[in-house]
Structures are given as C-alpha cells and as structure tokens.
Design a protein around this nucleic acid. Structure first.
Lengths: 155, 155
DNA sequence: GGTGAAATCCTCGAGTG
DNA sequence: CACTCGAGGATTTCACC
C-alpha cells in the first residue's frame, strides 16, 4: 500500500467531490502552494492511486433509463479471464465484478428500456458457458458524492 | 429526454475518458471553437445531463482492498426512503440501488479487510428492519473507460 | 515545499450567419 | 440560436531556490 498522508487524502476527497477543481482552489483548501498541490496530484497518478478522471452523467436524461445488475453463473470449467472478456464484449455492460461464491460474476448493465435489457441479458446468456442468470433491476440509485468519510485516513 | 446532438455525445465520451480534458483539446476533437465547447458543456450541466466530475481511484492502493455487494431484504412495511437513508448512514457504503424484485436493495460496499466488511454487514443488518442479507465479495473488477460505445447516439 | 515567469487555458462580451 | 473571434484574467507548468 502506498505512502499517502493526510493532505493526499484531503486532495482525493476534494477531487472526488469535483474532479475539475483547479489546483489553485485545492491549494487554498489544504494550505499549500499551487505547485505543491500539482506535484502531489501528479505523484498520486504516477503511483496509480489516481487512475483517471471522469464525468458523472445522468444516463436517464440520455434515454438510458434502465440500470440493472445481472448475476452470472458459469460452468465450473470456465476461467475467470473468459468471464470478464465475454461480458466486456457487450457494450451495454458498464462494469464486471468476479465474485467469490455463488454467482460467479456480477455485471452492471445500462439499457434504453426493458426490451433492450432483455436483448442484453440474452447476449450475456449466449456468451461463454453461462448456466444461469438472475437480473436485479434498479428502481432508484444513490451514489456517495463523498460528503462523508468514504476513504478516511486510517482505520 | 433532453435534446442532445452527436457533438454532445462526443463531448461526453471524451469527458468520460478523461474528465479533466481541456476545452481547447476537446475543441480540436469535435472541430469547434473553444467557446462553443465550453457553452455546450455548461449547457449539459445546466440541463442535468452532467451531474459533476470525479476522480477514479484505486482504493486497494489506499488500503481499502475489499469490494463487495450486499443484497438486503427488508420487512414488507419498510418504505424505500428508509432503506436508502439507513444504508447512506454507513460510511463504507459507496452506492445504494433499490431493486424491483427479490432483494429489496443492492448495496455497494468498500472495506479495509474481511473483518471490517463483517462489521459493515453487521451494521447494515442492525439498521432498519432488515430480514436478511447476502454478500457477494468481489475478487476482481473491470470498469468500462468508454473506449467502446457506452452511451451511443441512438439505438 | 515555495517562487516566479512563460505558456496555456478559461471566460465573456461583441459580432456574424 | 449557435457559432467565431479576441482580449483580459486565471491557471497550469516547470526550472530553480
């Protein structure tokens, strides 16, 4: 585990709340010079703590109103790499989690409507040696924007 | 659904790949002036398509090596608002999805280790009228960084 | 980690089709 | 209405202390 101090954690918290914060703004928050803040953020990227920056999108407003999680069960012989690979091939798949235990994988899916979701599930079932699926359709969601301690300093 | 054209989709795609891209860089990509790009992004924020920007973090490198999803089942009388509220109170909860069907909710959790995860699950069980939980522990994960069509223009 | 200066970038009003 | 242009100010970046 990397060598991250309290200021680094505060910077990460600030960037989680707003990934486009300026270095000058963050510098004021953590009471350092702008250059020092930039160096710290650059370092966090170099050591891989920060893997990138993204935009938060309201997909419903784009017509992608359906959000779901599909549990996948595979034949015992299927290697994990194949599970991830096949799910990755389906564009509607947002994320794949390989699981220790009952379902072998949990797949985060977005679709335009229920018919579309149906198609996506069908594609997932056809891919690899899927022996069964169970899909949880989200009615609503809430994501932490990091107002509370999501990645607090120490345990 | 909002009125988003192809250029807007391209801008969203660019921002999903790198949320800190400069307007000037995006302007080159979509072949518009910097000011035009800024106005489009501002507009996407105003109409709520863009809800914010964040940093992508490798939590394992911060000592938060455990990622899990907990399915929650509640007593039939529990209102959804209460489900979300209680889960929200637990800091290790990253996201909450209310579900149509069997589990009533799916909770995305991060913890330092299995002991910590145990504590988090215990807290979830004690909160509200939880009648049962099932936790899926992630062995690995993959998230789309939007190299492929994650939010394509039209169906 | 701080400073300072050059290069970039952002921002906004004015003008054009 | 969306775009381009241009100028002033803010931000980023980097070498040096």
């Amino acid at each position: 585990m990397a060598d991250i101090d309290d200021i680094d954690h505060r910077l990460l918290r600030l960037l989680r709340e707003d990934g486009r914060r300026t270095f000058s703004e963050m510098a004021v928050e953590v009471d350092l010079s702008v250059a020092a803040v930039k160096r710290r953020v650059d370092r966090l990227r170099e050591i891989g703590v920060i893997t990138g920056f993204t935009v938060r999108i309201d997909y419903a407003k784009l017509g992608w109103g359906i959000e779901a999680f599909t549990e996948l069960r595979y034949a015992g012989t299927t290697p994990v790499s194949r599970i991830v690979h096949t799910a990755t091939e389906v564009p509607e798949v947002q994320a794949v989690f390989t699981i220790a235990g009952d379902p072998d994988a949990l797949v985060h899916v977005r679709a335009r409507d229920l018919g579309h979701l149906q198609q996506v599930i069908d594609r997932l079932r056809r891919t690899g040696d899927v022996t069964g699926t169970k899909t949880l359709i989200a009615l609503g969601s809430w994501t932490r924007d990091s107002l509370r301690p999501p990645l607090p300093g120490a345990p």
